[in-house]
Design a protein around this nucleic acid. Structure first.
Length: 153
DNA sequence: GCCAACGTTGGC
DNA sequence: GCCAACGTTGGC
């Protein structure tokens, strides 16, 4: 059982979109970074906890809680020439990118990036490190507990 | 829109 | 394998 922070641009997929999806579940596709892919491929397991983070928006921060509900499978958008995620070097025989299904647990109040930076128990979070821009980053159990506690009520 | 930081590409 | 050039991310 691990914990993750996953970034999504709310203009693309927001926490509201996830909660409005059938079974509150959405396919996480479009990851085109090897480090993030490897986290999904090698470490994620069904039941892992997810901090759903809104990025590239007026108020970035954690907007909800979610969980991993599938094992990895090929990301269909890599084969779609009309997709912005198309990858000419990927083939169905040798896929390069993967998807995983994420189920929203609940929308929370926004724990903004600015507020996160004021919490000393979170200062080691990967996402808060200078220059960090990975879309999927590991979260420690202690960090998870701190955040979930802050988001209770 | 700016720009720091990081990742990828491709010539050599 | 090096590394310059270029592209992307994402907060501000």
């Amino acid at each position: 059982m691990r914990y993750w922070l996953m970034k999504s641009e709310p203009d693309e997929v927001s926490i509201d979109d996830v909660m409005a999806s059938p079974r509150q579940t959405t396919a996480w596709f479009g990851v085109r970074n090897y480090q993030a892919r490897n986290f999904m491929r090698d470490q994620m397991q069904v039941g892992d906890g997810v901090l759903f983070y809104h990025s590239s928006c007026p108020e970035p921060g954690i907007a909800g809680l979610a969980e991993i509900v599938s094992t990895p499978y090929p990301d269909a958008s890599q084969f779609d020439a009309n997709s912005k995620y198309y990858d000419a070097k990927a083939t169905p025989e040798q896929p390069r990118w993967i998807s995983i299904d994420v189920k929203g647990t609940r929308k929370t109040r926004l724990l903004s990036l600015a507020e996160m930076r004021t919490i000393s128990a979170l200062e080691e979070m990967v996402v808060l490190q200078k220059g960090s821009r990975l879309s999927i980053t590991p979260v420690t159990p202690a960090q998870w507990k701190t955040i979930v506690t802050l988001l209770k009520e």
